[in-house]
Design a protein around this nucleic acid. Structure first.
Lengths: 324, 324
DNA sequence: CCCCTCCTTGCACGTTTGTTCACTCGGCTT
DNA sequence: AAGCCGAGTGAACAAACGTGCAAGGAGGGG
């Protein structure tokens, strides 16, 4: 980028800031702003879009604390976590549902992440959807780390996962640390060997002291399988083994049962995600769920105490509390 | 308010919250929201207005830190305070100017005030303008206290000042503590006597430990005199005395000279505002200035180190840094 | 030096939003 | 019991807004 571009850039930012001020603080119309800024109304409209898209304008919704929705209260009481229920009409399709929850999360994420923090991020269709909408927020000295490997026997998986991570990193101005290993090793021994490599150890150490974790849930046996299950990461035998072990879901390729337990699930010895004892040390663990298909998986994750903040669509939330 | 009204109220708030979510987080159109909420588009428009007006939706503008305006930087460097420059076109009238600065301050004030805080507030045309626009924000156990008396020889001044204070108190859900004394006593002895009353002492103690002070500036000898000077609070002789003492302005009826000094200004023995040594103990001291007429007054207040955060219109800001 | 490309601009149009007005529906009074 | 009052509603209109498009301009490469 040339010097000229740079100063044009900062001009643009300054104009956007001024426009935002005039629009959101002083309630001028875009017309009036256009006049003050000596440009056209359309340009002001675009400036304001830009200001919103780049996080110069930050719009938050704050419940008066005494009025979180009934559902949020119920979930809070029953599971001792903070719930953020996303209103989605009951007749919405699962795709809509995911998209709308993801959009909401993307907008609110900045409230959980700040300078000098480390955020761990999984990958999958939910994370992908979120990543495409994250509202930027400038931070310093913050890190985004990949929670689990993404390669399979066909590709190194780098592009998909790294695109996702990259978008988060870009939005927050954070360093991105990829985890260049397969999602599942073919043999536990290989994993153990790699887990002694210094480059991997460095990453594991960062995981151990991260401030925020962001993840969706996998649900291997629902009709709408998650990315891991559709993408060729697992084979027939693996499925059978998961089924035998009564697995109901996974978080970052670590599988668990309905009661939240993980002991004796063979596949976990080959998976690359952080063990739950590591995850549970993380102060804030944001879980994003949409669609009732993930309900069993969600129940298990709650049992395992993996979640501190749950983002969930309204009807799934209702189902969660309905079914004692 | 009846029980029915109350629940209708909370229904309204819940709807407003949902609408705000759908509009600001999920980018639906009002039409779509109307459909989901089973109401008309107009109602949604009103719901959203309501949500904004009551602070359910909070819109902030955050400079990327590396790009505060040139003016803000200059002021910061030269006076060691935080400046918030409000963009106002140069050809605006002084009334416009005041109104627009006040609106901006009203919108941003919530960022400086929170639960369990004590905020001291002066009164005058600036405060009046701000009070008519404050965006509500619910707080608990917070207090608003009046910085100086408001009576004159004709009225007790309670209604004017208490309307102002009342609006702030209502917006923040804060207790309001009025200061039922005249702006200036006729004799210093009366002031000293009252200053030993327990009710007054209680107020002075609160002033001494307030967290935020909010005030405008008076400028006795400019063409556009402030409320105190127009309202019959002072008499001919007082003016002469101020003039002899080279007074350039006042903060909450405490007068000062261009160099920030107050010693030997007789009127201060009869005024009721907090002494500067008290004010300077307050962690955040927000000063709102609009119009170049107040420039000398502003310079004096800066010399006296009364200000930690300055809100000022663009052209006055420019004049402030231009003139060295 | 010219041309090509990419980015930005303002206009024109269609869409979205704010607001006025007439109306309805409880609650309270006479 | 009738009637009045105020709050809230949707329809209709007017204002404000977003966006596709063609034109213009700056930068880089041939």
């Amino acid at each position: 980028m040339s010097l000229v571009d740079e100063s044009a850039q900062s001009d643009r930012v300054r104009d956007a800031l001024t426009a935002a001020h005039l629009y959101y603080m002083q309630d001028l119309t875009m017309d009036a702003i256009a006049h003050e800024l000596h440009t056209s109304r359309s340009s002001v409209s675009r400036l304001l879009s830009h200001a919103r898209a780049t996080g110069l304008v930050d719009i938050q919704i704050r419940s008066p604390l005494d009025a979180p929705s009934r559902l949020e209260l119920l979930i809070q009481e029953r599971f001792n976590i903070t719930a953020h229920v996303v209103p989605v009409p009951d007749h919405a399709t699962d795709v809509d549902r995911l998209e709308r929850v993801a959009l909401s999360v993307a907008r609110i994420l900045g409230q959980f992440f700040d300078s000098n923090m480390v955020m761990g991020i999984a990958w999958g269709s939910t994370m992908n959807a979120i990543s495409r909408h994250v509202t930027p927020k400038q931070t310093h000295n913050s890190q985004i780390i990949q929670l689990n490997g993404a390669g399979n026997h066909r590709t190194t998986g780098l592009s998909y996962a790294s695109e996702i991570l990259g978008r988060f990193g870009y939005a927050f101005g954070a360093h991105v640390h990829q985890f260049p290993v397969p999602a599942f090793f073919d043999s536990p021994a290989t994993k153990q060997a790699l887990w002694r490599e210094r480059s991997v150890l460095r990453l594991l150490e960062m995981q151990a002291r991260m401030d925020v974790a962001l993840f969706g849930l996998g649900s291997p046996f629902s009709e709408v399988p998650s990315h891991v299950y559709a993408g060729g990461y697992l084979e027939e035998g693996d499925y059978a083994s998961l089924s035998r072990a009564s697995v109901v879901g996974d978080v970052a390729t670590v599988f668990y049962r309905a009661d939240g337990s993980t002991d004796g699930i063979l596949l976990n010895a080959r998976g690359t995600g952080p063990g739950f004892e590591v995850l549970r040390q993380t102060p804030r663990r944001l879980c994003v769920v949409s669609g009732q298909a993930k309900l069993p998986s969600l129940r298990g994750a709650l049992k395992a105490e993996l979640i501190t903040d749950l983002f969930v669509d309204e009807s799934t939330a209702r189902a969660l509390v309905a079914s004692i």
